[in-house]
Nucleic acid binder design. Structure first.
Lengths: 341, 341
DNA sequence: TTGTAAGCGTTATCAA
DNA sequence: TTGATAACGCTTACAA
């Protein structure tokens, strides 16, 4: 039915020149007689020819595409406002450098397998630490990449000051005499690989909470932890779980992500539990929605957009083979006090 | 410094076999002595080898990546909640088929130029009609693609019933005796190419408004149109413009996108203008945020997630060379009455 | 069970 | 100003 895609040879034959000439017409028009260029370009247009990007990239060893790799599923990434902001930053930098962006889907495959199939010049890996076995593989394959939101000593990385952000959040609650505080953690925080906690960010936030608890001589008991997926729904579910047993209800909640906090807050509202009087809530991230909840969410702000921009810049200097002035960027966090705590 | 990426030959030499054998070890392990396979895979692992996806794709004529192409900039796409929902649907389908997703950046280039550089198996084109010259090019290049939110008679497309959604929105206002109504339109709606309006969706929504105006014998005057970018900020700016001249203020606003409506609503709130009493507002899309505004936004709902899913499915059958049962999908819209009108 | 050789669609080098 | 030829890194008949 539909004619095959035309190749460089087809154009060459149609015009009566060599393939080289056609290539030149597209890439170095100056090296050809301008009349020839016109003839070639005309024929190309007529035949609907344009150079195969794959063949081109194979030779150039560059596709003009960078990828984002993270263990989460595609739909959950797009549902997550943190990623929206992060992508905005990444997108800004891509735009600036005429790069396209690929969101690599781990799907059923392993991360490294997925990334091995991805025709990208480099990868931004979100939420995985250097010690993760999949990361180890990327490195062995000489893939260029930057870690975002993960522990890294060797590999270039971008992180925010999770620890101090978390301390400020916990301190606010503690100062206000909360003593029964639950923590909504990332699900991965409790899993480990080779005896090391895999997910650096959650661990650092948890450590911040923990140390503040210590300062106030509150004994830390892992039973305060509620592993929660990064979504509104999961936050709502966490509320139900926490509220089930009337004797054991917390007076406050620290969430490692705003989405969880917002889910919890909405569910509390729906059940007639008053925030912050009956339950104080503090989130983390300061996604735009945090301002619009009722009451507005107290949270720890991190520069999500900037994080994305910086990650791309680092990746690009890496790809260019230039030295990085700062291999481990640490961006500040800041407690934003609104009305939920 | 860093050793070059290892190629298939390196592995072959290390093991003392041919490149073919290495290829087989990865792709048809059954065709090789299982011991040989192990030796090869071991060596590959040791050398950090994995097949070059570009070379592979060149041969297979397939990359396992589909692209999304739209005239907007990358950051504005990610800031736009409509795309978040749309991407969620696209992501769901990609996940299901083990596909990765590429967001093609037009950046400074023309759309067709950008897409010509994209190593994808097919494209979902959002917001461009078939008659657009860039689309014409895609087609001539034998690129597989599906149009979303754009007029199409030949090319497969996914759209929602913009016209009737818009009519319902306008009718609600008209029934409630609003007579001075402004319309926030997409910026592209007023531009045209070859004498045809380029952006089908906005045109259809506008036509819906217009016909309802006619039904109520209100004369349509293009001065009610306020071209507005698809962002909260632009919506806020539109409010300022509309409110500038006290004699000319509308009593109601129809926005072709929720983001515009929300920007307008927020700015109205900030200025002490009461919605819906001083100004009624109706949006379009029903993004999640529409429920959380104060007052909650009355709007026209469209199935954004489903739209994305369906677009991918169509694209995949197209790529597979199979016939499409329905080349032009039209999804329903529905007026959601909340409190802003 | 393994290897040889051709080819995927380009671009780079060098010569004409 | 143009063209032959050899890469790029892999897969796949076909042969051994």
């Amino acid at each position: 039915m539909s004619a095959k895609k035309s190749r460089i040879e087809d154009v060459a034959k149609a015009v009566g020149v060599s393939a080289t000439a056609v290539s030149f017409a597209f890439n170095r028009p100056d090296r050809l007689n301008s009349k020839t260029v016109t003839r070639i370009l005309d024929a190309a247009d007529r035949l609907g020819y344009s150079p195969n990007p794959l063949a081109r990239a194979l030779l150039a060893k560059s596709t003009g595409v960078i990828g984002i790799l993270t263990p989460q599923t595609l739909p959950s990434i797009f549902k997550n406002p943190f990623f929206a902001a992060f992508h905005e930053g990444v997108g800004r930098a891509c735009e600036e450098h005429c790069l396209s962006l690929m969101i690599v889907s781990p799907a059923s495959r392993s991360l490294s397998e997925a990334s091995a199939h991805a025709p990208v010049d480099g990868l931004i890996v979100v939420g995985l630490s250097e010690s993760h076995p999949e990361i180890e593989l990327l490195r062995r394959r000489q893939m260029q990449f930057v870690i975002v939101d993960g522990d890294a000593e060797t590999v270039p990385s971008v992180n925010v000051d999770d620890y101090h952000g978390a301390r400020q959040a916990a301190n606010l609650l503690l100062e206000r005499d909360h003593r029964r505080i639950a923590c909504l953690t990332f699900e991965q925080d409790l899993s480990s690989s080779h005896g090391k906690k895999v997910y650096g960010v959650g661990r650092r936030r948890l450590e911040g909470y923990k140390h503040s608890f210590n300062d106030y001589d509150i004994l830390w008991d892992d039973s305060v932890l509620v592993p929660t997926a990064a979504s509104i729904d999961a936050g709502a579910a966490a509320f139900k779980q926490l509220w089930k047993n009337p004797k054991n209800r917390p007076t406050a909640v620290l969430a490692v992500a705003d989405v969880m906090a917002i889910g919890m807050l909405e569910e509390a509202n729906a059940r007639g539990v008053c925030v912050p009087d009956d339950l104080a809530i503090i989130g983390f991230d300061d996604i735009p929605q945090a301002q619009w909840t009722r009451p507005p969410l107290t949270t720890v702000r991190q520069p999500m957009v900037e994080k994305g921009e910086i990650a791309v810049q680092m990746l690009l200097t890496l790809i260019a083979g230039e030295p990085l002035t700062d291999r481990h960027v640490l961006l500040p966090t800041e407690l934003v006090i609104r009305k939920s705590a």
